[in-house]
């Protein structure tokens, strides 16, 4: 229990710390790297909570796809982040006010929030985590009860793929490609020509 307790606080502290660094770092590439760090630690928190499927999805989708894409964009676009930050102090009062309003609203929501007495039966995993893992349970639902929708979603992704190719793929003309077959099939006769150079006339005249 103590180990779990310590691990939780380590993960939580790293998440909060790296999330702060995402907005505090001067270099945008560092920001993205801190974002990835916070995703990883959030995934660790999910594992602690027994939601291993969410943890995997977080790593695969957010770290594997979203953050890498983000990194690409940050590296490809030459955005002057220092200039973007200008006027930070000027807008600080307005930003602080909005933050305060949001905080009050959140407190109101949390204050009025009542946990349903049925939550233990409604929100409890079925079957319990000890008997079956999340991934197993999700897969069983997805491939039986929601099989139809799962397959149809697959068709939607296929359409998205076809659409992206149809709208962007171009056959470039005038591109010279290496043809290994042609290179190997070349004989000495195709490539070398013997010329008799008349002495004193130079090479240019005889070619």
């Amino acid at each position: 229990m103590l180990i779990q307790f310590i691990v939780f606080y380590v993960f939580a502290a790293v998440v909060v710390g790296s999330a702060f660094m995402v907005i505090a770092a001067r270099n945008p590439v560092h920001s993205v790297l801190f974002l990835i760090l916070s995703f990883f630690n959030a995934a660790g928190l999910f594992v602690l909570a027994g939601a291993e499927f969410l943890a995997m999805t977080l790593v695969i989708v957010y770290v594997g796809a979203v953050a890498v894409l983000f990194l690409f964009v940050v590296m490809m676009l030459d955005i002057n982040f220092v200039r973007l930050r200008q006027g930070f102090m000027q807008y600080l009062p307005l930003g602080a006010m909005l933050g305060a309003i949001l905080l009050v609203e959140l407190l109101l929501v949390v204050g009025a929030f009542v946990v349903s007495p049925e939550v233990d039966t409604l929100a409890a995993p079925m079957p319990p985590v000890e008997q079956q893992s999340n991934t197993h349970a999700l897969g069983q639902l997805l491939y039986t009860r929601y099989m139809y929708l799962f397959q149809a979603s697959g068709m939607i992704l296929l359409v998205a793929m076809i659409g992206a190719i149809v709208l962007t793929f171009r056959v470039r003309t005038g591109v010279r490609r290496q043809s290994i077959r042609a290179q190997v099939a070349r004989t000495r006769a195709d490539a070398v020509e013997l010329k008799k150079v008349v002495s004193g006339a130079g090479i240019s005249g005889s070619l």
Partner: peptide, 21 residues
Amino acid sequence: LLSLYVGLELQSLSLYVLAAF
């Protein structure tokens, strides 16, 4: 409602691409 939405999206997405064909 779920199959309604999935069907609608499959149809719409194909139509968007066809419009810009």
